[in-house]
Design a protein around this nucleic acid. Structure first.
Length: 457
DNA sequence: ATCGGCTCGCGCAA
DNA sequence: TGCGCGAAGCCGAT
């Protein structure tokens, strides 16, 4: 074993800011990415620190509906998840402080606090936002990385492909998955809550009541949210779907794993916890589900963490930019506008089905999403516009939109983390996909039928 | 049904 | 500096 726990911890928890003023009345955890209680490294570090200092802990969340201008389906899903966070904390006799955003709120929350723990932000935009919020706060600030292994421990730079990251993972893990211990539940009863017996349930509910949800999505998808729900989903998946994962993972009708990404996005479940459980099932590091949950997922985080252009074409590899530019003025067989795509008005029944699935369920199956993205490239006047459209639709409708995996999923269609292929019109050397592939891989007509009946989950 | 070729850049071995 | 290798597919030859 080439790594030890001390190595991991020095990368896991980072000192973002040091203060000379060391005395405070409580420790604070500002929950953002990791919206869960169990297996939450940030909460765990905050609890341990509070226990050591014999100070109470204040766990809080700031809700800012204006932060991203987007559909309120996302807010609805997140707020329902926070209800479960609130209930879980209450069960452990801890208060969950839920605040609606206003100016100078953070200063108020952190009045008389000297040690703040935050979830490590993984994108430039999140970092910039955080930096702005933390201006003028004189306190010790620690960020905690909630990935399976800390991002900066595995790699100091943007990785070129899954292969290069995989190599580093396999080397550092000595080809063996290691389980991880979580002591959140052990410490949570030993630490006092900063203010006892406050309950944010009513406040969260009143925010939910204010929402104006689009009438495209089935509301049931938005209610099935939160760490408790997510645990049930993942348990069901692990019990019933892991054995045939490889055969089924490309089949959009195989839906057991379909909602896991949204729970991972909001941090309702910990990938490290899932991996630790999988080790008990004797899963090896090269299992295709580990490839997805560990290598592909953390490759996406590596990408958004190190590349400031994670949300535009500038981040594509050189060969992709070159070939896309060379073919940018090729004649397109079909040309659609954003609105044509958005309301599923193309000539292609398969593509329209994928878009319809996105509108009505907040999700496109992984394989269909590749096809979906490739066709936006094919049917838009230029590739930069195509990327904008694909990201816009993804961020607007997909419940895990704005997740690193979402960005990478889209940009993969334009060559990111991929290789060049035989040159052709419009695509240049970008990997091409067509509907024959859909027919070859699964029963695409059944998919179309099921989407039209809204019968996929 | 199955197989090789397509094509690029990383990273290790010299 | 050279070379082996990988990468969520397509296409045409057997």
């Amino acid at each position: 074993m080439s790594l030890n726990l001390i190595d991991i911890e020095s990368f896991r928890t980072r000192i973002e800011r040091k203060s000379t003023n060391s005395k405070g009345e409580f420790i604070a955890y500002w929950m953002t990415n990791a919206q869960r209680v169990d297996c939450n490294y940030t909460l765990e570090r905050a609890l341990k620190f509070a226990h050591k200092e014999r100070l109470p802990l204040k766990i809080f969340f700031i809700y800012n509906p204006g932060h991203y201008k987007t559909l309120e389906r996302h807010h609805c899903f997140m707020l329902h998840g926070l209800l479960e966070v609130n209930d879980l904390l209450k069960k452990y006799n801890h208060s969950f402080h839920f605040f609606s955003y206003k100016d100078n709120l953070l200063k108020e929350i952190l009045d008389r606090c000297n040690h703040l723990f935050i979830d490590l932000p993984y994108t430039e935009r999140a970092r910039a936002h955080l930096k702005k919020e933390l201006i003028g706060l004189d306190m010790n600030i620690y960020s905690v990385d909630n990935l399976y292994l800390p991002l900066t421990l595995i790699s100091k730079k943007q990785e070129f492909s899954a292969a290069t990251l995989r190599k580093k993972y396999y080397k550092i893990l000595d080809n063996t998955l290691i389980g991880q211990d979580f002591s959140v539940l052990e410490y949570i009863s030993k630490v006092d809550s900063f203010i006892k017996n406050t309950d944010s349930r009513n406040q969260i509910c009143s925010e939910i009541d204010k929402l104006n949800i689009d009438n495209l999505i089935d509301k049931n998808y938005l209610i099935r949210s939160g760490p408790i729900t997510a645990q049930n989903v993942i348990d069901d998946f692990l019990d019933n779907s892991l054995d045939n994962y490889q055969e089924n993972s490309n089949n959009p009708e195989f839906i057991k794993n379909s909602t896991i990404s949204r729970y991972l996005h909001y941090g309702h479940i910990s990938s490290a916890k899932i991996i630790t459980k999988l080790i008990e099932n004797n899963l090896k590091i090269d299992h295709p589900f580990i490839e997805q949950l560990l290598i592909r997922r953390e490759l996406a985080y590596n990408f958004t963490y190190y590349n400031k252009n994670y949300n535009n074409s500038e981040s594509l590899p050189n060969w992709a930019i070159k070939t896309l530019n060379e073919h940018n003025y090729d004649r397109r067989e079909y040309l659609y506008t954003l609105k044509d795509f958005e309301f599923a008005k193309t000539h292609d029944v398969y593509w329209n089905s994928a878009q319809h699935q996105l509108l009505t369920s907040g999700y496109i199956h992984g394989y269909m999403r590749m096809y979906w993205g490739k066709k936006i490239l094919e049917w838009t006047s230029n590739y930069k516009e195509a990327i904008k459209i694909a990201l816009y639709l993804n961020n607007k409708y997909q419940l895990d939109g704005r997740n690193p995996n979402s960005y990478v999923g889209i940009l993969w269609c334009f060559g990111l983390h991929d290789r060049a292929w035989k040159e052709r019109k419009v695509f240049g050397k970008i990997r091409y996909m067509n509907e024959n592939g859909l027919r070859r891989k699964f029963d695409i007509n059944r998919y179309v039928e099921k989407v039209s009946k809204n019968n996929l989950f």
